[in-house]
């Protein structure tokens, strides 16, 4: 038998032991990039096999044309405005109802069923209904975005509030901390993770809502433009808009949520 000793490597040794390029290749950003490359290659392959799948070249060409026609910015601006208002409303209302639901059993009993019903109604139904109710214009996409997203925010926040530490709630009530301060300093920070998850859902689900409402509403915007190309049987133009949506969602997610999450959880990551 040979005597073996377990040697622990110090962080300095670990850093100098692996070459820089190797660390970069095995990093998380590298994994992300690998996905994008793979997805792109699959797309190229599918386009080569099927006539009705437009390839990257065709889509880029349509996108460039759409830009040069000046259609992109004005339509996206419309969509963004509707989307932002709808998401903002759903977050404000969802937070309020979610906090109330989480704090009071009575409120929970009251709101539980409508929220469940709301969760089960797909965006496309709201898109149809709001176009019927409000006609063409900003109202239908805003209301669709709001109605699609708000149940997700509510359910997430309510769950978070119910999970707030009993000990901290008892501490607050024994010191007679006023309700407003309790919500601001105890409840909201405690549910920050749930709120972020809820807002993230709201953003992604909200995109569905706004695009569908524009698709049927015919009042301009990204969804309207995508339908225009779809109706014209121009799949490259249609795909160009789909790609634009996807890029916007990914960028929003990375820029806003990663940052918001890092900021909200500074206290957890602080070194000793």
């Amino acid at each position: 038998m040979t005597a073996t000793a377990t040697q622990r490597r110090s962080s300095e040794e670990q850093a100098s032991g692996t070459s820089a390029w190797r660390r970069r290749v095995t990093s998380e950003p590298a994994a992300r990039v690998t996905f994008y490359i793979t997805a792109f290659l699959i797309w190229v392959g599918l386009a080569a096999m099927f006539v009705r799948v437009p390839g990257p070249a065709a889509v880029t060409a349509s996108l460039v044309k759409e830009f040069s026609r000046g259609e992109v910015f004005s339509n996206f601006a419309d969509t963004f405005y509707r989307f932002a208002v709808g998401v903002f409303l759903s977050v404000v209302v969802g937070l309020a109802i979610g906090v109330i639901m989480g704090m009071s059993g009575l409120a929970r009993a009251f709101f539980e069923s409508p929220v469940l019903v709301g969760l089960s109604i797909p965006a496309i139904i709201w898109a149809f209904l709001t176009v019927m109710w409000f006609g063409f214009g900003d109202t239908s996409p805003i209301v669709t975005t709001f109605l699609t997203a708000v149940p997700f925010v509510i359910i997430n926040v309510a769950q978070g509030v119910q999970g707030v530490s009993r000990d901290l709630r008892d501490m607050s009530s024994s010191y007679g901390v006023p309700l407003g301060r309790r919500v601001k300093d105890l409840i909201l920070p405690a549910v920050a993770g749930y709120v972020l998850a809820g807002v993230r859902f709201a953003v992604i689900i909200g995109w569905n809502g706004v695009l569908l409402a524009e698709w049927f509403g015919g009042s301009g915007g990204a969804g309207f433009r995508a339908r225009y190309w779809y109706d014209a049987n121009q799949f490259a133009g249609f795909a160009a808009w789909v790609i634009l949506f996807v890029i916007v969602i990914v960028v929003l997610d990375q820029l806003l949520f990663e940052r918001a999450a890092r900021r909200a959880f500074r206290w957890r990551d602080a070194g000793h």
Binding site: D167, M171, S174, P189
Partner: peptide, 23 residues
């Protein structure tokens, strides 16, 4: 009244001073 509990019961997301001011 002031209370001291078996465990500290501090808000983990607020600084020490803000925890004191909370009550």
């Amino acid at each position: 009244m002031g209370y001291v509990f078996q465990d500290p019961r501090l808000l983990p997301w607020r600084s020490v001073r803000k925890n004191m001011l909370y009550v």
